[in-house]
Amino acid sequence: MPETRITGAGAETAHQGLHSAQGALRGERPGRSRDPVIKVADLAWLEFEKPDLDRAEVFARDFGFFVAARAPDTLWLRGTFAGPPCMVIRRGRASRFIGPAFRAAERADLDRLARLAGSGIRDVDAPGGGTVVDLLDPSGFPVRVVHCAEELPALPEQRPLTLNFGARPSRANAAQRPAREPSRLQRLGHVVLETGVFTRALDWYLDTLGMIVSDFLFLDGQRERGPTMAFIRCDQGSRAVDHHTLALHLGPGTGYVHSAYQVTDLDAIAAGGEYLAERGYRRSWGIGRHIQGSQLFDYWRDPDRFMLEHYADGDLFSHDIEPGWAPMSASGLAQWGPPVTRDFLGADPSPARLREVLRALRGDNELDPARLLGLMKAMTS
């Protein structure tokens, strides 16, 4: 993992290249807290409510989840890697995202958070058990930090194909025939959230959970006003971790954008996508390769219109890497792939979205007419 030789317009960083600036300018905001309360180790799971758990389970299996536990009103989903489950879906009157749960590095972290929040520590009903502290971020998302008692054991993997690379072939007298089957999800990678209080929310995740920024995005002509999107990773010191575990972006709404799940390789993405298409599910955007994070991606909508991503081959950064800075633009979302869709960008007009915009422009948040026009321009640039 290359180390940055620290900040400044001329600094050499891991972020140089397509649609990337060279780093922070003098006086721009840092990407980490000097003294965070704790440092979370990773995402644990995401929590949803849905009225039809049977339909949710059918899609989950088709997308590549495995069922960790099922009760009349609760569905726990997991990947193949050992560890906590990826998702819990509880029966509710309407389909909605509740919030993320992060994994504490040690049990004592829960005590620190409980003292900060003035709340108690309770047992969690997840497979494997454990304890949890309930928090609330500045956007209003319930955020849970959990210490798991036991890891779920690993499940059989989807083996990567053996590939021939030009002058270095490694496969002879054997044909490639990847099965047309669901991608076997390995683990939860990240979640992306929209918020009207971007700066407050970002500071909270850095100060409270000890996360650090991998990349900032800013609006064209508004860099002096600060970033409007941040890709945030966990800080595990010299151990390289996912480029982003959480991404936040400024917008008129407050809610879930998408979540991403790691699979074995490009063939797992493509064959799994064919399987989903054959069953009538809707692709939102893909297949392509991102810029920030570099991962291969493919986005799908579930029957409740939540967006989920298959991904592989993402960047891994240690704590040595300082944030990159780049302009926000639709063309800056991918190195290659089909043009980004309006569905992925959330740019399809609807009465509900218009109401969100009008409320945001009148509310106590960071969205003003200049910011809104800048976001609209970014979606078409």
Results as ranks from 00 to 15, higher is better:
P36F: 01
R362F: 06
R32F: 15
V143T: 07
H290G: 14
G129A: 09
P72I: 04
W204C: 07
V133Y: 05
R103P: 00
A105R: 14
R112D: 09
R301G: 01
E151V: 04
P351Q: 00
L202Q: 08
L185Y: 05
R233P: 01
W336S: 12
D220T: 07
A104K: 10
A230P: 12
L246Y: 03
Y205N: 10
D203F: 00
V241K: 10
N365G: 15
A108S: 14
E150G: 02
D203L: 12
G374I: 10
D364K: 10
R115V: 13
A24W: 00
P138W: 00
A101P: 08
M1V: 14
E49M: 05
G226R: 02
P303H: 03
R362P: 00
D220V: 03
T208Q: 07
T195R: 05
E322L: 14
G140P: 09
E3Y: 02
D348P: 02
G92E: 06
I269S: 09
L358R: 12
L136N: 08
P36V: 01
D267E: 15
D313I: 00
E274Q: 12
L333H: 07
D220M: 09
P153D: 02
Q186A: 15
E224Y: 06
A360Y: 05
E28Q: 13
G374V: 10
R90V: 02
A330V: 13
E322N: 04
R233I: 00
Y311W: 13
P182K: 00
I287Y: 11
G332H: 03
S33F: 01
W336L: 15
E194F: 07
N164P: 08
F216A: 12
G8Y: 05
L135V: 07
I321S: 14
H19T: 06
D304H: 04
A44G: 15
A334G: 08
G17W: 00
N365W: 01
V88E: 12
D265H: 04
L53N: 11
V133L: 09
L110R: 03
A172S: 14
K39G: 11
I321A: 14
L53Y: 10
A154L: 03
T74G: 01
A117R: 03
P327A: 07
G31Y: 01
G83R: 02
L367I: 15
D313Q: 12
A60T: 06
D235W: 05
T254S: 10
H310F: 14
A24C: 06
L316W: 05
P72F: 01
A44F: 00
F165L: 14
R171E: 09
E3I: 11
L217E: 14
F344E: 07
F48H: 07
D123M: 00
A378S: 15
P156Q: 04
G272S: 11
L135C: 11
L25M: 01
D343M: 09
W325M: 12
P349H: 02
A68C: 08
D298S: 11
A24T: 08
G83A: 09
Q292L: 09
I232W: 01
S259L: 10
V191F: 03
H310C: 06
P84G: 12
A277C: 01
H244W: 04
S170D: 11
D298T: 07
M379P: 00
A94I: 12
F102H: 06
R200A: 15
G280H: 03
A334E: 13
H244P: 13
S259Y: 07
V143E: 03
L266C: 09
I291W: 05
H258T: 04
L46C: 09
A347V: 05
A352L: 06
G129S: 10
R225V: 00
